[in-house]
């Protein structure tokens, strides 16, 4: 009798007896839509990146393949370097430092609070996250207005055009305001997973708040922190909303990469070039994601080595 060794965990992996055929059938609709409306246009975009395709004019109808011309152009373009640098600053300050830190602080401070104050703060933070982006952009434009904005009234700085004088600071603060909710939600979920007994033990030994955080909380939520940083970094990296507040200006002082692509592809009509920048952005995203995943795997490997299937 032939002995067949089933691959590790086949049966326990399929507890409902779904089987490959049915699994393929029920995932087919999702995969088909993804193939048609995501993979296909994405690949097309990548292809455009190797042409001189333009929105209007002769090259709109007869795009020519230009090989890697677009890429060498982009990589040598000082505007691109400038924009890339701004994006790095934007991600670093607004997401990694701003959203993640503020989100954690809120989650930590409100962790055993109940009542209206907690509900109010959470509601406002979440509202900032879920309001439509055009509305939110209007709100900020109104608040920052040079003539009658609330901020100038509040700070008694009449006539300050915040969006023009400090464009990067404005979009960084804006993005913190807009996106902190996600980190807050994630960290408050993560904090419920920290065993209270361990915190109590640390307190019993006289650990202060910082020591409790360092020795008990962070080791527990390290995975959540990494997931959070990965997602908010990627989202912020690809975020186009700042355009609605500063339009990348003045003089490109807040022209982060998504805005730069918009200007190149739609404003200047150089679709091919825009597509090439998109690919470069995708590669950067990929590197960011790989770094985080690497860190994540190290964490898991450190505790319990994953058994590898042959």
């Amino acid at each position: 009798m032939a002995r067949t060794a089933s691959p590790r965990g086949t049966d326990t992996e399929d507890p409902a007896g779904l089987g490959r055929a049915r699994a393929a059938a029920i995932s087919a609709p999702a995969l088909l839509i993804i193939a048609a409306f995501l993979v296909f246009p994405a690949l097309w975009t990548l292809y455009l990146g190797t042409t001189d395709y333009r929105l209007t004019g002769f090259a709109a109808r007869h795009p020519r393949g230009v090989g890697l011309q677009n890429y060498t152009n982009v990589i040598q373009d000082p505007d691109f370097h400038h924009s890339l640098w701004l994006t790095v600053e934007y991600v670093l300050f607004s997401a990694v430092l701003g959203q993640a830190l503020l989100g954690f602080v809120i989650a930590w401070m409100l962790r055993d609070t109940r009542g209206w104050l907690k509900r109010l703060i959470e509601a406002l933070v979440l509202l900032a996250w879920i309001l439509p982006s055009s509305v939110v952009a209007f709100l900020w434009v109104a608040m920052l207005d040079r003539g009658s904005g609330t901020l100038n009234a509040l700070l008694n700085t009449p006539g300050t055009a915040w969006a023009i004088e400090h464009p990067m600071a404005v979009i960084v603060v804006f993005n913190i305001w807009r996106g902190t909710a996600f980190s807050m939600l994630l960290y408050s979920a993560a904090l419920t997973g920290v065993p209270p007994s361990q915190l109590a033990t640390a307190r019993m030994f006289g650990a202060n708040s910082w020591q409790q955080l360092r020795d008990v909380v962070f080791p527990h939520i390290r995975g959540h922190i990494l997931t959070n940083l990965l997602l908010i970094s990627l989202w912020t990296f690809n975020d186009f909303t700042p355009y609605q507040i500063t339009a990348g200006g003045p003089d490109g002082k807040s022209e982060i990469l998504p805005v730069y692509i918009y200007q190149t592809a739609l404003f200047d009509g150089q679709m091919g070039l825009g597509a090439a920048i998109s690919l470069l952005m995708l590669l950067i995203n990929l590197v960011v994601a790989l770094v985080y995943l690497r860190l994540l795997r190290e964490r898991r490997g450190g505790r319990k080595p994953e058994r590898v299937a042959p």
Binding site: L38, L55, A289
Partner: peptide, 30 residues
């Protein structure tokens, strides 16, 4: 629930691709 080789890699790749398609550069293909 059903083992498909490389399923996590595929998912990550799709996740990254989705950021292109929502971007402005994919407007013409779309």
């Amino acid at each position: 629930r059903v083992r498909i080789p490389g399923r996590n890699g595929i998912l990550y790749a799709l996740l990254l691709l989705s950021s292109i398609v929502t971007g402005t550069a994919a407007m013409v293909p779309l």
